[in-house]
């Protein structure tokens, strides 16, 4: 990132990317450099006018990722305390998404190698799970309970120590 912003010629260049569903996006090179995959493509001279194709990232999450990278690249160095706080607020607001988008961001950030966004999405997922019962988590993430009653009983018995010792196994899950 630092290299990109130091180099005045490159930092103004716009990089085009194409989502899996054919939508085109543009972002400054400094922003694209926040993605490991895009950075390597740029270094290998694969960034041309046609745009870098991202086969597994659909337009919706890609638009978010372009937003994220553009914002973070613009504020990458020499942050004042206020700017750092503003960026924090941006992140907090940015990641207030539904579970579908959260899932898309988890996959896309991992695929594109955007470390900051990966961490943000992973933390958000963990925060959604924290402090909830398995039943509440199933509801949040649409997880289907595919255990047979026998299996469920077995799991509850096996892992009773991690639930409430005094609680009857049948109510654990």
């Amino acid at each position: 990132m630092a290299a990109a912003t130091d180099d005045a010629g490159d930092s103004n260049e716009m990089i085009r990317v194409v989502s899996s569903d054919g939508e085109h996006f543009e972002m400054p090179e400094a922003a694209a450099n926040l993605s490991l995959v895009l950075r390597h493509m740029i270094e290998d001279d694969c960034a041309d006018a046609a745009g870098i194709p991202l086969a597994v990232v659909a337009a919706k999450p890609l638009a978010k990722i372009v937003d994220y990278c553009t914002k973070h690249a613009a504020k990458s160095s020499g942050l004042t305390i206020e700017e750092a706080e503003e960026l924090k607020r941006f992140d907090a607001e940015f990641i207030e998404v539904d579970t579908d988008m959260l899932y898309d961001l988890l996959v896309a950030a991992d695929f594109m190698g955007v470390e900051g966004l990966s961490k943000l999405a992973v933390q958000r997922t963990a925060d959604l799970i924290k402090g909830k019962t398995p039943e509440q988590n199933r509801e949040t993430f649409g997880i289907v309970n595919d255990f047979t009653p026998e299996e469920e009983e077995e799991i509850c018995k096996e892992n009773e120590w991690a639930f409430q010792i005094t609680k009857p196994p049948s109510r654990l899950c």
Partner: peptide, 16 residues
Amino acid sequence: LLPARQAVQTCALSRR
């Protein structure tokens, strides 16, 4: 990122 107890409790979600 989850405390251990909560991490273990994910065992009750589904077979996965």
